[in-house]
């Protein structure tokens, strides 16, 4: 593949990729228009899939808007007869919502930042550098994917307790600084696809590894790094087991704990509509963030893009 096809520098590659995406609509790469029905078929398929995947969210929202009596209706109604927005007010006032929200946000933002940086650096070590024994060590990374969480629960807690850090957010944040098998593996798979000669060329030009890492590889790995950021955010925001055992004081508890409190009341008497309202409010920030950040799934590697 020659370098003549596309010659943007990494810096303006993003905007170029976006404009390519936009004007590729209904247009083939060679410039001829697609037949009109091909986009219709694609849309029909996607709308059908969308309906299936929207149902859980839809059900959550309408359940949160129903009255107690309507929730008991059989068969269940698909559109609430009266819209009980008060359920949202009740859900928010049933727990220190703002405080829990802030706590969740602090933990999540920290975890995302640390995860992206630490896993990226470690994955670079496994994918872009060559050193003796690298792949054997990598098998160790894979091995840790198969560790069942219940057995690590107690020794980990003992350790944090000895450090006096129970009831702080540190046990939930600090591990993110050291990389995790899942993300390292994920990023490695992408970084291995970066053309070798591109890195070598930079090295011959005298670039230091640290510079190559951030200037050359980081922009290229953006789709994969976005994936890591999204996963880390969702896992941290929805994490239940960690906060449950490490955060006992309400001053540091998170939204997922608040949600659980709704559920574990006398099983006979859960305010289901409020539970669904609270659940929706909890995932709403994630939904919005995802919508905003999904555009970073741009073209990663552009062959010939590096000179």
């Amino acid at each position: 593949m020659s370098t003549t096809l596309r010659t943007e520098s990494p810096r303006n590659r993003r905007s170029a990729a976006r404009s390519v995406d936009a004007d590729q609509l209904n247009r083939r790469a060679d410039g001829t228009r697609r037949p009109w029905y091909s986009s219709v078929i694609a849309r029909v398929v996607m709308v059908v899939l969308s309906v299936i995947f929207l149902l859980p969210l839809y059900w959550m929202v309408i359940s949160s808007l129903k009255s107690d009596e309507e929730l008991a209706k059989f068969p269940p109604t698909f559109i609430p007869q009266s819209w009980q927005f008060g359920n949202f007010v009740d859900a928010v006032s049933a727990m220190p919502f703002l405080q829990f929200f802030m706590n969740s946000a602090i933990i999540t933002v920290s975890v995302v930042i640390f995860s992206v940086i630490s896993n990226f650096v470690v994955a670079y070590g496994f994918a872009c550098l060559k050193w003796p024994g690298r792949d054997l060590v990598f098998y160790l990374v894979i091995a840790t994917l198969f560790l069942p969480f219940p057995v690590t629960l107690i020794p980990m807690f003992d350790m944090w307790a000895r450090l006096g850090l129970v009831n702080t957010m540190f046990p939930l944040i600090i591990p993110a600084m050291f990389g995790s098998a899942f993300y390292v593996f994920l990023l490695r798979q992408f970084l291995l696809q970066i053309p070798r000669d591109m890195l070598d060329a930079a090295r011959i030009d005298g670039a230091r590894e640290w510079t190559i890492l951030w200037r050359l590889v980081f922009p290229t790995a953006k789709p994969a790094l976005t994936t890591v950021a999204i996963f880390a955010a969702v896992a941290s925001w929805n994490d239940f087991m960690g906060p449950l055992i490490y955060l006992q004081d309400e001053s540091v508890q998170t939204l997922s704990i608040g949600l659980q409190s709704f559920r574990s009341v006398h099983a006979q008497d859960v305010s289901f509509n409020q539970l669904m309202a609270a659940s929706f409010l909890v995932i709403l920030p994630l939904l919005i963030l995802f919508f905003v950040f999904q555009r970073h799934f741009i073209r990663g590697i552009t062959i010939g893009g590096f000179k």
Partner: peptide, 23 residues
């Protein structure tokens, strides 16, 4: 897919992964 509303599809397909398991 190269369609204008792809951001919506992506969000919708991913949404169930955000919903707590009990819901």
């Amino acid at each position: 897919q190269n369609v204008r509303e792809v951001a919506w599809y992506r969000t919708i397909f991913y949404a169930p992964s955000l919903i707590p398991a009990f819901a």
